[in-house]
Each structure stands twice: as structure tokens, then as C-alpha cells.
Simulated scan of single mutants.
Amino acid sequence: MSAPTMPPKLAEIVDDFASAPREVVLEMLLEFSDAMPPLPAEMDREGMEQVVECQTPFFLRAEVADGTVRTWFDCPPESPTTRAFAGILAEGLAGASPQEVLAVPEDIYQRMGLAQAISPLRIRGGIAILGRLKRQVREQLA
């Protein structure tokens, strides 16, 4: 059995960013920020985990059910970079198995070329978001 790989959709997003010129990367981030789905009406930050490493209030929740991971993110519209991280993960991990989520590399944002486009502090927040998401998945599998 081969080692799990990150979900194909997320891999495609990573490749798109990695091959894009720097000036286009910022536009792509804004598109993912704008496309981040809102929380369902019946859900609020109660029961979500805050990612304190983010400069802005950021909350997430992951749920493993029927062999897939569902994610919810909450972040204010005034924080487009952080919302973009959430939008990338929401789209790239949609329908992913727990093993695929856990296989997402810690250096995903560097692989995307974002370290050249945004500040290290923002990258650190993105890494923390991914870390919390993976921890929640691992806890539910245990």
C-alpha cells in the first residue's frame, strides 16, 4: 500500500500557485478569500477552535464522518490573506479522507510560493491553521 498523498484538488491548487507570477498570486489569494464559504446559519463560533497564532480572530472545526473530513472556518472579511488560507483548504480538502488531510505537507504554503508574496507572520498563521485542522482529525480518528 502506498503512502497517502494530499487530495488531488489541493495538489492542483498548490501547483497553480507555484507556477503563477508573483503579481497574479495576490489576485489568486483574493479570489480564494472571496470564495470562502460562510458558516452555516445554525453554526457559530461555539464549538470551534480559535487559532491564536493568527493576527485576526480565526476559528475552525473539522469533523470526520463516513470516511471524509468536513471543515468549517470563520474569519472576518477584513482579513483577506487569512480568509484565503481558509478558502484554499476548504476547496482543496472538500471530500478528502482523513488520511489525505493528514498527508498535507506542513510546508504547503512555501510550496505554493507564498513566502515570496506575503509576510512570514501570515505564513506562520497559515501553518497554525493547518496544524490545528490536522490535530482535530487525528483526535477524531483515535
Rank of each mutant, 00 (worst) to 15 (best):
I118V: 15
P77W: 01
P21D: 07
R124H: 06
L89T: 06
D44N: 15
P120R: 10
Y109G: 03
A90R: 03
P21Y: 08
Q55C: 03
Q55H: 03
T82M: 05
G95A: 03
S33Y: 04
I127D: 04
F85E: 07
P76N: 14
Q50G: 05
P38E: 08
D34I: 02
Y109W: 14
L121M: 11
P40Y: 07
A115L: 07
G87V: 02
S97L: 04
F85P: 09
R83F: 12
G126A: 12
P57V: 07
Q116D: 15
R45H: 09
D44Y: 11
Q116L: 14
V101A: 04
E53P: 00
I118H: 14
E49M: 14
M48Y: 07
C75G: 12
F32S: 08
A35H: 01
A96M: 01
V51P: 01
E27Q: 14
Y109M: 05
E23F: 12
S79N: 09
V51S: 03
S79G: 10
A35C: 00
S119H: 07
R22T: 15
L29C: 03
I108E: 05
G67E: 09
A62C: 09
R124P: 00
Q116I: 10
L89C: 07
A86R: 00
S119F: 06
E42K: 06
L29N: 01
